[in-house]
Computed example of a mutant assay.
Amino acid sequence: MQITDWDDAYQNGAYIPGADDLVAGWATRAAAFRAKHFEEVLNYGSGDRQFLDLYRPETAAQGLCVIVHGGYWHKFEGRAFAHLAAGPQAAGYAVANVTYTLAPEARISEITQEIAHAVIAAAKAVPDGPIFLTGHSAGGHLVSRMGCPGVLPDPVADRIAHILSISGVHDLRPLLRTAMNDTLRLDAEEAAAESPALLTPRPGLRLTCAVGSEERPEFLRQNDLLANIWTGMGVDTQAVHLPGDNHFTIIAGLESPDGTLTRLLLDQS
């Protein structure tokens, strides 16, 4: 199907029944999780939004999971998705929920660097065990960027066992055709330089791209695109379409240790 209206292609809420209630539910579940679990706040920079919330399991952590929120690089914060830490934490992992500077204050290339600093800080706080990275939508883009050379220092990158991009945007060039770019301020050079689908991945990387079967066609395309291209570069990849899920319901799969996304992320499926 040829896409001619790129603003519509990246519109999610208008095509999801009960979208407002789903978003409100995130805030309710995030607040409930935070009320029950102690969080360590780690600053990875001096900016107001350059921090992460670290949730440790009850026993010694088996490793580290880092979660990066979505919102098209210009909405939300990590704490709005604190409940997504529930699954990996219950499975025995320390979980870092990252908050970052939003556009237009920060360009996407600058946000990429912030996420790298956040991963480094979390890895220092949890020095043992593998690292699992996951993010939703814009967060899927950002964790995929962590799999490219030169973003993370080798000692941290070498610990990455798996990257799970959930409904990720992996080629940013179509965003140049959207009204949203008034906020993102992408130009052609930055869009290409920040698109994982146009970049070479680190050797030995393992990547899963997961998307809901009921998502917009552009998100289905973006999901399969990165897995397809990085497969040709020697990366162990898979593209997964989760039946019945849309862009807003899919992330619930991280909320329990036996959730679909938790199992995918930790390779327990």
Rank of each mutant, 00 (worst) to 15 (best):
I115Y: 05
R177C: 11
L254V: 09
R202C: 02
P57Y: 04
R29K: 15
C65R: 00
A94R: 09
D171Q: 03
I16G: 13
R34E: 15
S46C: 03
D8L: 13
I67A: 06
H117P: 00
V169W: 06
N228R: 13
R185S: 04
E215H: 10
A210T: 08
R221I: 04
C148L: 04
I166T: 12
D7E: 08
S269K: 11
T112W: 07
L220I: 11
Y55G: 06
D20K: 11
L133T: 05
A122H: 03
A61L: 09
R173P: 11
A188R: 08
R29I: 10
L242I: 14
A157P: 06
A82N: 07
G147Y: 13
V235C: 07
V23G: 00
V98L: 07
A96P: 08
R202Y: 00
M146Q: 15
N97H: 11
D48K: 01
L42V: 13
R56Q: 13
L265W: 00
I115S: 02
A106N: 02
A27M: 02
V156T: 15
S256L: 04
H136C: 12
D171V: 10
H117D: 07
A96G: 12
M1F: 01
D258S: 14
Q2D: 04
A121K: 08
P153W: 10
Q268T: 06
G70S: 05
A31R: 08
H141I: 10
A157T: 00
G13E: 11
A103M: 00
V235F: 08
G87H: 15
N228C: 13
D245K: 15
E214F: 08
S256Y: 03
A106D: 02
A188P: 03
H247G: 10
A118N: 03
T4K: 09
L54G: 15
D5W: 02
A239K: 06
R34A: 14
E114L: 05
Q11P: 00
A138R: 01
P196E: 06
F248M: 02
A125E: 07
A60F: 09
I251L: 10
K36L: 15
G92L: 10
R185Q: 05
E39C: 02
L133Y: 05
G135S: 12
N97S: 14
G244R: 01
P201D: 03
G78K: 03
C148F: 04
T262N: 09
G204P: 05
L172T: 07
G253I: 04
G168S: 09
H241I: 00
G92W: 13
R216W: 06
D182W: 04
A60Q: 15
V95L: 14
H162M: 15
V143K: 05
C65V: 13
A31G: 02
G87E: 13
S195Y: 01
H241F: 15
V68Y: 14
E40V: 03
H141T: 08
I120A: 06
A90L: 10
R107F: 01
R29C: 07
G150D: 11
W230P: 10
Y72T: 05
T112F: 01
K124M: 11
A86M: 06
N223E: 08
S144G: 13
T28E: 15
